[in-house]
Amino acid sequence: MTTYFTDQHEWIKVEGGIATVGITAHAAEQLGDVVFVELPAIGKALTKSGEAAVVESVKAASDVYAPVSGEVTEANDTIVGEPAKVNEDPEGAGWFFKLKLTNESELSGLMDKAAYDAFVASGG
């Protein structure tokens, strides 16, 4: 199972045609204490780079984009009730939503861990 990263600071893990998406530890740290999360409805069709979710801290608000196209199969309601989970474990229990991929080839355009770390280090 591979984890991919986007230049908008989302991560995506794919397993059996289902992808789990969240925001990176770096993004969570930059935002500060997360206070609100809005997740897509189950069944919603997302297109690559389209707006998928919203994450807010006290003084910042960001859209979370879909790293790839797909249909939403699950949303992490835990982080809606406890937004602090996004800061505690952004790349684990703080995941946002799951997608059924519609075009697996879109993954090839994303970064791997090493490339993403280099991207962050370069000020991305």
């Binding site: 204490d33 206070v35 609100f36 807010e56 801290s57 006290v58 937004p83 602090a84």
Partner: peptide
């Protein structure tokens, strides 16, 4: 300083 995080959550 006031707890703005709690206020917003």
């Amino acid at each position: 300083r006031l707890d703005e995080t709690a206020a917003a959550r």
